[in-house]
């Protein structure tokens, strides 16, 4: 489904090139649950943005569902983000002035889904994340865990093939974090491809396999059973902050 071949991304900061990703080659099959780990600045988020078509690679090839993404026009990338990818962010990125339903409907508004269908699908998505009773509440009235579940409902609204989550539990306590992870697991079980960037070994432990990045390159691939060892090797085994 996702095939990366020697994918690189270089930024210019203050005239100096920064190699955020260096020749990353990786394949992710449909329905897989993959975690991306690595220290800060290792290029995890950049990889997620490239996969989600929010960013374009400097070199290399990215094939998504058989199509070379680098050759696509901007409008096609917009369409891919709209229809095939769902994003979940650490900071939730909910629109404060819209209520739960409004936030979930937002992607469908831009995708020109008819109003009635939009409403129906938003309710279904809220139901799926267990927030049907919070549809009329604004993000400020929700707990952190509820906010992230609302963001997941929004990501699901357009029925994407791939959910891209950037530190989805980074701002949550353990209990609500676990609820979010349970939800992601369940969605993965229903066939959704899941790509999760995380610092947290507990999050990675739920993935089928983990890809470890350092300085923009993949340095280790670990199946679930190898994860603990791999994290120790790369000094990532310690439970993060808090």
């Amino acid at each position: 489904m996702i095939e990366l071949d020697r994918l690189s991304r270089t930024y210019e900061i203050g005239g100096e090139p920064v190699h955020a990703l260096v020749e990353v080659t990786e394949s992710i099959a449909a329905g897989e649950h993959v975690a991306i780990m690595g220290p800060s600045g290792s290029g995890k988020s950049t990889l997620l943005h490239l996969v989600g078509c929010l960013d374009r690679p400097t070199s290399g090839s990215y094939r998504f569902e058989g199509r070379e993404v680098g050759a696509l026009a901007e409008a096609e990338l917009d369409r891919l983000r709209q229809r095939r990818f769902g994003f979940v962010f650490q900071a939730f990125h909910l629109v404060a002035r819209l209520d739960g339903l409004g936030n979930v409907e937002l992607p469908m508004v831009f995708a020109q889904v008819p109003r009635a269908e939009r409403r129906e699908r938003a309710h279904a998505a809220l139901e799926a994340v267990g927030l049907a009773h919070r549809a009329g509440h604004r993000p400020s009235e929700l707990s952190g865990g509820e906010r992230q579940r609302l963001a997941i409902a929004r990501a699901l609204a357009m029925r994407p093939g791939v959910l891209l989550a950037d530190e989805p539990t980074g701002n949550l306590d353990t209990k609500s974090g676990n609820a979010v992870l349970d939800l992601l697991d369940r969605l993965n079980g229903e066939g959704l491809t899941l790509l999760v960037v995380t610092h947290d070994p507990r999050v990675a432990r739920r993935a089928d396999r983990t890809v470890i990045l350092a300085d923009g390159a993949i340095v280790r691939r670990a199946r679930r059973e190898e994860l603990a060892q791999a994290l120790t090797e790369w000094g990532l085994g310690v439970e993060p902050h808090e």
């Binding site: 989600g52 901007e74 409008a75 983000r81 990125h93 831009f110 357009m158």
Partner: peptide
């Protein structure tokens, strides 16, 4: 700005 980023992430085009 962050909201604009989100809109682009959920598939809104520049034109939208």
């Amino acid at each position: 700005t962050a909201e604009i980023g989100l809109l682009r992430a959920v598939g809104a085009s520049r034109r939208q």
